[in-house]
Design a protein around this nucleic acid. Sequence first.
DNA 1: AATGAATGAGAGTTCATTCAT
DNA 2: TATGAATGAACTCTCATTCAT
Lengths: 195, 195, 195, 195
Amino acid sequence: MGSIHRDKHEAILDAGYTLFGTHGFYETKMSDIAELADIAKGTLYLYFNSKEDLFLAVTRRDCDEFLDRLQAELHSLETVQEQLECVSAHHLEYYYRCKQHTKLFFMAPNNHAELNEYLKQFMEMYTRMVADVLETVSSEDTMLFAQTYIGMLDRLKMDILYDTNFNEDDLRKRIRFASSLFIHGFMSAKPANEV
Amino acid sequence: MGSIHRDKHEAILDAGYTLFGTHGFYETKMSDIAELADIAKGTLYLYFNSKEDLFLAVTRRDCDEFLDRLQAELHSLETVQEQLECVSAHHLEYYYRCKQHTKLFFMAPNNHAELNEYLKQFMEMYTRMVADVLETVSSEDTMLFAQTYIGMLDRLKMDILYDTNFNEDDLRKRIRFASSLFIHGFMSAKPANEV
Amino acid sequence: MGSIHRDKHEAILDAGYTLFGTHGFYETKMSDIAELADIAKGTLYLYFNSKEDLFLAVTRRDCDEFLDRLQAELHSLETVQEQLECVSAHHLEYYYRCKQHTKLFFMAPNNHAELNEYLKQFMEMYTRMVADVLETVSSEDTMLFAQTYIGMLDRLKMDILYDTNFNEDDLRKRIRFASSLFIHGFMSAKPANEV
Amino acid sequence: MGSIHRDKHEAILDAGYTLFGTHGFYETKMSDIAELADIAKGTLYLYFNSKEDLFLAVTRRDCDEFLDRLQAELHSLETVQEQLECVSAHHLEYYYRCKQHTKLFFMAPNNHAELNEYLKQFMEMYTRMVADVLETVSSEDTMLFAQTYIGMLDRLKMDILYDTNFNEDDLRKRIRFASSLFIHGFMSAKPANEV
DNA sequence: AATGAATGAGAGTTCATTCAT
DNA sequence: TATGAATGAACTCTCATTCAT
């Protein structure tokens, strides 16, 4: 029974992830989610109290996994360079893997306190994870550096999302480009494809 | 006659800017915009064909001005350092000035072809403007570098938006921090408050 | 379950028949139909996709029944005279029974392809039914004769609709009058009340 | 001044005739009529009090002319046969001339007392005109005969309106067909194309 | 007499949510 | 636990009419 419950719970989250991700919060109907999850509309409300709650749960599952995996990958690495490139790879590969689900962050519902709170926490944890990497080198302003690094990565995802010809080579180039630029700066940077 | 028409047009754009900016596209009602602009609901439709069109016009006015001002400011500067810091200042000060209107970008309507097209163009023009600055130093991958720089800045705006204690000093610090980090990289960076 | 569904479906059609019939398509509000059918406004849209579709369904039910009954009645008769009088009676009695619902044909929505198509088919089937009766006597231009006969009948309904003193005797008189005139023509016609 | 006034008055009626006739009352916008008449929207209301009034005026002009012309044509004829064929020709040629304006009668506004009153009067005058023709032969039930004749004609117009291949020959055939059928009846009728 | 910008009541339709089964 | 028919508040947009110019 409990496992049937878990299965349905997951099925709803999967459907929500797909639809919220591709059409955004407002353009996704609860009935569509129910249909894709192959359950009745009313059943959704046995598992989630509202559309907002479901969206939060979808976001949470996705973001938590993002952080867990990053944490695990970082543990096995030693140098700051390696670790920063790991962050870069993790961030960009995430978007490369799920190009089509990016409305999840763009089109979130407004004014949902709990969601805003969660997203804030997520960003803080993500930033702290990167800051911890930097801490081994310098202890000043690591949160600010970390934040900025994440910003760089987040912009580079744009090509992934909008450039339809974007391929694996472009991906690898950007992964190295970002960590290198962050570490050495623009002035000392070699052109991206030589890095 | 024409000036009354222009006034009302502007009043609607102002009201739209305020409400779309604070509540996002979907959570803003046309009737609220009409009320804030102090006109009748029907009058909105004499000036704009639809809610989407109004949103596009609001966005356009805001973004065009952003680029025009940046262009003008860049012209009067000479070194790359100065110019990059100018970009940094322009970007962050924009958000500092209008903290409360940031939903304009977050919560845009989905699937509005013309809007998507415009935003793409905006980003390309913004990126190219920054790339042109970098071109005086290196001609390799300038679009990629420019994009990344903008990404850094865009993430730094987050503190502005969510940290309620954020003050003018924090602003100035981040402006210098961003350009310095971009130019010299993390490894050679001095702590931010010494830059 | 299905029968509750059928009941509600019928209730909506009944309400639509009454209101469209008395006020016409444009002067009837979906909310009025919902109210008369004793359901919520939104429920209408579970059964019909749009106001136009509902109107079409109402029309269809009414016209189909009209033809089915006529068909059945004609089968039991033998002479052309009897059959033509049966058509006459059927046509005029229909209007006599539902004087108040005649806006159904007058005030249909414009430009609804499916509705126009249906009405065209209805007229063709009605005409063919009458033409088949005539065919036993002559095979020339039966469709044209049939059409004309229906035209005569359709004009005679006007008194029914607008003459408030119109009674059953007037009805019977016109039923015989029409078939007799059609068969023998004006020149050889005896005065209507002697037929 | 007066003639300018008359010109504009006529221009509005012409535009109304065209648009009401092609799209019906409800699907025609006052603004479209103004545009077609080449005047401002507000000006319409200097000449007509409301959309309904304008529709009534358009109808009135059209119907009055219809009767006036018929009256004139009938005067020059002598035998009942000729006169009835004249009615037939007048009725069908009217529709043949203005196929595209037939929404004028189909899609009239509901519940406009004055319009309903006028249409009733129109029908009565039309019927009486035909009844007067019949009176020279028989004095019984002439109104009923007249009404029925008009009904025949009105149905025959349908082919004109919906059969896109309908040509002048078809028209002439129906004109003779109708009067002949009315006079001699179906039983003694010769096939239409031999009449 | 002529204008056309402004009005605002009111329409059809949607969809998150409920609840009897 | 699961259903899905039913709900009704809330939305965007229309258009006949007005009135200051």
